[in-house]
Nucleic acid binder design. Structure first.
Lengths: 150, 150
DNA sequence: GCTTGTTAGTTACAAAATCAACTATTATCC
DNA sequence: GGATAATAGTTGATTTTGTAACTAACAAGC
């Protein structure tokens, strides 16, 4: 029975492959954090991302959000539509350039943002607690570089 | 016009939030690496993951792959079906437990795996080149820990 | 001014992911 | 042994995403 054993030869290990590792770590943390905003606010990942951007930066256009967060414009468009429908944000046509709209959180949106921000901060601390302060800072720096955010 | 300015107060920055950073970095690298196997072998992300698992570990069941890679069983099932259809792997019913099947790469599957593994190694090196050897090793360690792989 | 090209954002359609229900098989417990 | 529960894997229905084409508004060249 010529059952050729697969060449274990190379020292390549999937579990050390950076794209794989990044994906696993991201998936793990996203899933965990998702429980919170999904079950509690019925929000999708893209939606809280948009909410967070508006929360931290104030008024922005859909385009600016998409650029910063690397989210495709159709996804942003749909997330904005849902958030507007839930009265978490308002759209005001920009009179200087009437193609775009300035988006801003309503009072309700800000309230949700502040709640989620608090949860996010605690969650982040819990993750960072796996490491020393220096390691955590280095990790953030490295991830920013890999994400092309530098 | 009571335009309440959003509290820029807290020093919370989305761009430092670990789940966000992980997601951005993972997305960035996955998209880039995907160009290669997608354009070249018409494979989906889940498919090369399954292929890689079989390539590095030899025979496995669908369940084992799903557990290791954090992929839902329906996704694994469909990926396995496609790889089988392309004759990259064979399924052999496990006589000890006839519910499950042992999956193994065919010669063709192994050939593709080896090619992709080479590409993956070079890609990984390029990513790691952003950092010193020590930093890169630390990064992998930290990601493994965050992914719960330790 | 008018044609041509861009850009912000939306929408329609196709591809993929998620969820629930199903089959076949094995394990448990009485 | 037989009923009940649990498990491996598949399939179909629903959601979500990605791709393309579209509308409306602006910009540039002439």
């Amino acid at each position: 029975m010529t059952k050729t054993k697969i060449p274990e030869n190379d020292d390549f290990d999937l579990r050390n492959f950076l794209p794989f590792l990044l994906n696993q770590a991201a998936e793990q943390s996203s899933l965990e954090f998702q429980q919170i905003y999904k079950n509690r606010y019925g929000m999708l990942r893209t939606e809280w991302r948009v909410l967070f951007h508006l929360g931290t930066h104030g008024e922005m256009t859909a385009k600016q959000i998409g650029e910063r967060a690397l989210i495709h414009k159709t996804k942003v468009s749909r997330a904005v539509a849902k958030l507007a429908q839930r009265r978490y944000l308002t759209r005001t046509r920009d009179e200087a350039d009437r193609r775009s709209e300035q988006l801003a959180l309503t009072a309700a949106g800000q309230a949700v943002y502040r709640e989620l921000r608090g949860i996010a901060e605690r969650y982040d601390e819990r993750m960072a607690a796996h490491f020393t302060k220096g390691e955590a800072a280095l990790l953030r720096m490295m991830l920013r570089r890999l994400a092309g955010m530098d």
